[in-house]
Design a binder for these strands. Structure first.
Lengths: 233, 233
DNA sequence: TTTTAGTATCAAGATTTCGTAAGGATAAGA
DNA sequence: TCTTATCCTTACGAAATCTTGATACTAAAA
């Protein structure tokens, strides 16, 4: 299940408090997965790969600090800790073990929300998340780096060539109409110049295809537009 | 002192408190740059490119919230806010404007240290993060010490040259657009002067490349921007 | 087969973008 | 004051890129 909204994992043993948080978070558009033990939490992080973890330190089955330490051996998931304990040593211990934030109970739900968003915003630029890579056969397109490879050889594309290819990559497997391509690459005032497309598609094929006359990736959909083949054949 | 230590910028108008924090932070091995006004802070972020900002909200010359908003238009520097105000709205406002963390006075120095480290740790994993030393081939760049080497020979760069190179280092492997570079190095009012880039890129190449006409590190992405090559070839 | 609409290719000229050099302005330090 | 370093400005040739027009190809319809 892929969707725009982030999935938050909540590890909290008090059912009432769990329910309360659940409602608050969902009202902000987050998906929430709630578990009651550290064990279940560790498993959920591995299996569900949530975007962020909200961890109550007081757990029945294991020490909250230990949950953090164990997680950090193999995961970089953002962690916000909740705790009734406000001693300096508790806070520094949790943070030093690898937590990202620490809130003492009682806390304002609005502040929790803002802190979650702040952390997600910070983490949104992680390499894994930001690096959009499309690959089919020999062809590899790294959108965020603006780099294109055929097998391991890097291909240099001009801005128009790259923007055109991007638009096809973003809709890989689907036809993109002439109008759509022209509008994205040249702007709304050039939607009539479908001639440009032929020129640049030819150039792209020349650079990316082994046999430009019989393209494997950049396919023509006569009368409609072009399509980037996403399946090997 | 260890070379890779991060530079922290402290914006705090109370001299006594500034002194106190300064001592605390330095005792932890951080380099500290302290200023007393929002204006000076904004300039320092641009010119010194610190790894993290500690911002007291109560400033004499401008609203602390505005400092955050203005910074976030062109900088992703991690921000920890200090404030005597503990109202929910103050906190959420600061975070929603783009701060990463918020501490209410009085706070424990140990907690501040742990929170700084937590944030730096998080940010170190991002592209454009607080990676301290960048190296590829013969070229080595130490961001916080502001030193650059080609093989073992140290190269002297002017402030603009260094800031330009920093910006490329922070996004090593990614294209950085003309606009982005101009905004970071010269400020938002100079985004049109793309010829500055050509001049200074030429100077950088002259200083850093063995064959400036055929650059190995400082690559041009025609029509888009420049890219620092992150892989040897 | 001929026609036709849509597509592909080629190459030259126009335009934009880049690299380089040289000189003037400014400010800091000797 | 003179020197030095840095930054900005101007100018121009070179390179890359885009646009344009002419021409050839292909497949489906008449």
């Amino acid at each position: 299940m892929k969707s725009g909204n982030p999935l938050l994992l909540l590890i909290e043993d008090d059912p009432q408090f769990q329910m309360l948080l659940n409602t608050t978070l969902q009202s902000q558009g987050f998906y929430v997965l709630a578990v009651g033990t550290g064990q279940a939490g560790l498993i959920a992080v591995r299996n569900q790969q949530p975007s962020l973890l909200i961890l109550d330190l007081g757990l029945p089955d294991m020490d909250g600090q230990e949950v953090i330490s164990r997680l950090r051996k193999w995961s970089e998931i953002p962690i916000i800790v909740l705790s009734a304990r406000d001693q300096e040593t508790d806070i520094t211990l949790a943070l030093d073990h690898g937590a990202d934030d620490y809130l003492t109970k009682p806390f304002s739900p609005a502040v929790l929300i803002s802190r979650i968003k702040a952390l997600l915003r910070r983490v949104a630029k992680l390499p894994g998340g930001a690096l959009e890579v499309f690959q089919v056969g020999e062809l590899k397109v790294e959108l965020t780096r603006r780099r294109v490879f055929v097998s391991i050889k890097e291909i240099s594309l001009t801005p128009i060539e790259f923007n055109l290819l991007s638009e096809l990559v973003r809709h890989a497997g689907f036809v993109v109409t002439h109008r759509q391509l022209l509008e994205k690459v040249w702007g709304a005032s050039h939607v009539e110049h479908s001639h440009y497309l032929r020129i640049y598609m030819a150039q792209l094929r020349h650079k990316l295809e082994s046999d430009p006359a019989r393209p494997r990736y950049l396919l023509t959909e006569a009368g409609v537009g072009y399509r980037l083949n996403e399946a090997e054949n």
